[in-house]
Amino acid sequence: MSRIKKAFENGKAFIPFITAGYPDVETSEKNILSAIENGADLVEIGIPFSDPTAEGPVIQTANVEALKNGITTDKVFEMVKRLRKVTEVPLVFMTYANVVFSYGIERFCTCAKEAGVDGVILPDVPFEEKEEFSEIMKKFDIDMISLIAPTSENRISMIAAEANGFIYIVSSLGVTGVRSKITTDIPTLSGHVKSAAKVPCAIGFGISTPEQAKEMAKYADGVIVGSAIIRIIGKYGKDAPKYVGEYVKSMKDAIR
């Protein structure tokens, strides 16, 4: 059984997003391990991009800072290799098309597979453009994760039918970031997705509190949290691993 599939077998999955190299490689590696030790079922690792057009201010800043501090795609691969020696939790890259394309899709997949990566999320590659990437990923047994948005409507069944790994349900319009309230009709959206999907579904964008996570978990197989964690990392810097761990534990407990 694939690692991603297993991640959804321990009740509702909690999926933290952590930007590699923010504030530095060592701390981000510790943050990931701390999240895993405290109940993360799958970790999304962000490979920083200079111009992350789907991100709100919090993750934008993390990307810029990480690049300023010298993170590169090669260093992210090395970090994942080290993580893979100590954990079997599925690791999924979240980055932008150009990071993969510019590296060479085939070469990127070779390195990702070697490092032990299970999937890749590219928010700027929609269904119509995915083949160029997914055909190669398939060869390496890497799942290309599909996203479904509140505006997807008539596109849901088409996307869900070809989805691999899990489906990322985008809870809200706009970019990533903490929201006090999620206004999308999630039960209806996730109902449509679940009826068409053959893989588990996780909801992300705007979720930050255990209460929100608990509510969202009613309608999906997992909950994804990014900006709220990046904010903790931004606040505590090198001391963040402890706080990231505490936060992940509170979130996992809320949806268990």
Binding site: T53, A54, A97, P123, D124, V125, P126, F127, E128, E129, E131, E132, L147, I148, A149, P150, T151, S152, E153, N154, R155, I159, V170, L173, G174
Partner: peptide, 20 residues
């Protein structure tokens, strides 16, 4: 399935939210 190509260039590399 890609649209709007000029040779290899062009396409629609945007978030799903904007596709419709």
């Amino acid at each position: 399935k890609s649209k709007g190509r000029f040779g290899d260039h062009g396409g629609q590399y945007i978030p799903e939210t904007l596709m419709n």
